[in-house]
Design a protein around this nucleic acid. Sequence first.
DNA 1: CTGAAAGCGCTTACAG
DNA 2: CTGAAAGCGCTTACAG
Lengths: 361, 361
Amino acid sequence: MKSKDQALTIYDVAQRAGVSIASVSRVLNGHTSPRPETRERVLQAVAELGFVPDGAARALSSRLKEVVAVVYRQLWLDDTVEPVFESEAENLAFVDVMNRGIEVAARHKGFDLLMSSVDVHDHLPVARLHSLAGKSDGVLLHDRVLNPSAIVRLAERLPVVTLAATPTRASVNVVGDNATGMRELVRHLIEAHDARTIAFLSGHADSPDSVMRTKAVQETAADYGATALTGPAWQGEYSANSGARVIRNLLDARNPLPDAIACANDQSALGAVYALRARGYRIPDDVLITGFDDMPLARHLNPPLTTVRQPVQQMGALAFDALYSMIDGKRPEQRQLTLPVEVVLRSSCGCEQQAPVRTLT
Amino acid sequence: MKSKDQALTIYDVAQRAGVSIASVSRVLNGHTSPRPETRERVLQAVAELGFVPDGAARALSSRLKEVVAVVYRQLWLDDTVEPVFESEAENLAFVDVMNRGIEVAARHKGFDLLMSSVDVHDHLPVARLHSLAGKSDGVLLHDRVLNPSAIVRLAERLPVVTLAATPTRASVNVVGDNATGMRELVRHLIEAHDARTIAFLSGHADSPDSVMRTKAVQETAADYGATALTGPAWQGEYSANSGARVIRNLLDARNPLPDAIACANDQSALGAVYALRARGYRIPDDVLITGFDDMPLARHLNPPLTTVRQPVQQMGALAFDALYSMIDGKRPEQRQLTLPVEVVLRSSCGCEQQAPVRTLT
DNA sequence: CTGAAAGCGCTTACAG
DNA sequence: CTGAAAGCGCTTACAG
């Protein structure tokens, strides 16, 4: 492989400006030392030549690539997803918004992002992980991309921060305060709406977020002597599809509806709402429904969805900043960074009734 | 900035394996030369050490980074977007699907992607462009990221392929066959549904796709002695919001509806449909509507949207492959790569009536 | 403030 | 098949 012919280097610039390559390097890197006159000549030569310093050479010499790899799961629509849930793509809103936060924070520091997605049904091939690791200063891992032992192995080589996962002895993790958020939500369901039986329609069984939320539902229910429904029958996987499936199975089995169904995220709440309404149930009259995340769709569901707001974009930004300081050689003060969340009451839990939103089509 | 302490290099591996660094390099790069025994020892040392070769050093020495930069526009929801059009995010489906095609093709070649988005309302800062250019072997530019002269300047430094834009003397462009697709669509509207007045609800004025489609509408209408409505009153910008706005302005001004409205993309058709229905108009009874792209939403609109299918993911893959061969030193045979499109007839143009799709909420 | 020179960690002719 | 050595294009002590 040969690249573009005209391979301009710092030597060309130096020659044209009549200075040493050291001086060129200095002005290019914004050092204060070169005096105005020198700076001027260099800048002009750079402009005339259209010189762009080679990133690989800079990285090798400064031991900093200014690149961070981000690995996330991506769902690609196929024929197994019901058309109505095409907005299933919104499921990704969570990851997308987080990535946006990462991107903004990275930009602030002059870093670029090597983005790599893994199909939800696959795992990250080790060859690809090595390729990414070799090309970056640190790695940002979304939930369920790598198992804990693989994370530790990676984190022993270079800084690693995970998102909505679990910290390891070598990596840092950023999460929303699942326990507090879910606890307050369930407490509200019980105290304000008299829910006695509360189901938790979970996310992936191996999702730390889902595990934490499950636990919070169970504990809070227990505190009040209420019943928490969890387990295989309530096992979803964060998608609208899975939310609808759980509800249909429940109804098909002629099981009674609980007083409230706390869903693992807004997306699965959407699916649950859809399936319930299709069978003639009304929300919140027949059953209370809640979500988690407060993605934009929550506000526009019919009825508007009571949920727990996570500062998703900030979580992404915080993750980058944590990674950055690790790259900078600082050792993290804490391995787990927890961001506060906030219960958002709308009508799906029985609070204030609003006019139904207009539908799109 | 100092990075992780344990800086394993190829020397460590060589020492442990008892061979030269050249041999290590050879087995790491899959050369055939090292004999099995040597290969074995190296591989074991690599595994034991958990060695990952430094990408910057490889890139500098082999003159290939195996990284391509992708720059695209991104719309971030803010309060100026009507809540109903929150699915406006789907507007990005076009870019997202293309990026997916790029990613798949890149993976095939062992390349990674440096993804960088620009807010729709901003332009790409030159410093960022240089940062990206310095870190990659080539650049993939989505529409409207850079103006033609900036593209030429960039393309003189390294390989550049644009998407849904216009080729320059230095860059290659990948597009769908706008002219043929739009021409066939308009012909259908006229011949099968007797449309005599056809409006083109356009995309951004500076979008090459929109320009081509406008022209096709005008020419085809002229061929049949039909009237094409275009211009400022029909100026949208590919979003549902803009589609609705155009319709409302039209209706507010008490202008008559044309027989058909060909929209610049599915997204703006969605907005147009919404605004028309909100004012009591029926589709296709009162006016025929068509889209462009055949994004998933088209099939599920009510009524299902007649549109022109573009092979979006393949366009992305083709763009990467073209860029790859340029990076490989080959000079492109053509500067414009056009992919075939296909008219997809559904009921919004008056063809086969189907049962309305279920709505989500 | 400025320059000559070493060195970052690889790959790859060039010899053997 | 294998190794010693040059070189990729920068940054940065080290002198001056």
